[in-house]
Design a protein around this nucleic acid. Sequence first.
DNA 1: CGGCAAGTGTAGACGTGGCTACACTTTCCG
DNA 2: CGGAAAGTGTAGCCACGTCTACACTTGCCG
Lengths: 146, 146
Amino acid sequence: MSRVPIPDLPTEPTQARRFGKARTAQSTALAEDYAELIADLLASSGEARPTDIARRLGVSHATAIKTIARLKREGLATSRPYRGVFLTPEGEALAARVKSRHRLVVDLLRAVGVPAEAAEQDAEGIEHHVSDLTLAAFSRYLAKAG
Amino acid sequence: MSRVPIPDLPTEPTQARRFGKARTAQSTALAEDYAELIADLLASSGEARPTDIARRLGVSHATAIKTIARLKREGLATSRPYRGVFLTPEGEALAARVKSRHRLVVDLLRAVGVPAEAAEQDAEGIEHHVSDLTLAAFSRYLAKAG
DNA sequence: CGGCAAGTGTAGACGTGGCTACACTTTCCG
DNA sequence: CGGAAAGTGTAGCCACGTCTACACTTGCCG
């Protein structure tokens, strides 16, 4: 009988490692989204207020404030009561990385024929799981094909 | 001066919707992973035991059991104490969908030049955020380019 | 057939991200 | 300049996914 009705599963530790990484990635995703959004707001309007951030993200302002507190704890942002949020140099670096990665993912999706709105929507979730290796491949592909 | 140093942000509700969807997607990701893995284990060894699932996923058996309970609540799986886990028809359908989507994502990544191991790793996280529209585009692209 | 190893299940704790409700500042306009 | 609207912050709740610790079944082997 044919040999591949059941393709071999990855070895147990390999698969566990993959899932583990995917789980961990998710914990950094929030910080990345916030950093990028704060950078955008600062660039486009000069200030990033918790309420604006909350509205953009579709969460309550209380949730936004809690997450901003986490960014501060992690050294990515600064803020003083009633005075808006700013990014530390590390926060800005993260935002820049995230932004360029986002663009690259959207461009790649578009390049292989994904409609614009779907590309934007899916990129929002996909981008957090794209490794540097994959990103480099996207970049090469776009340089060649685009 | 140049007109596009700051590309317009998406409108507030649009962006909120995108983030919201990305957040929601993540909540279904776990169920998808479990369904796919259970299907694989059933296919390759005839049974899916909580401990095997836990080891593959890199979590404790207690976590696996709790998540299996959730799958049961959602009508995707069945199990009786000490007797292993099985999928309902809906669970099998989900597993099949997830499996083919996973394959398509890996193939697409490979097709644009992502190294095999990176493709497998990243697909694990990416797959949960790929919409049907995007999946269809991937499929078209592979048919044309592959 | 008795007992032990392996597997299974349950309880309880923790951190996270989400929410609502309420209190306090700021800002701005009459 | 005073008060109301808008924004900010805090408290307390919930669901979820994770863990460790402990108790109970199963199944097999001597």
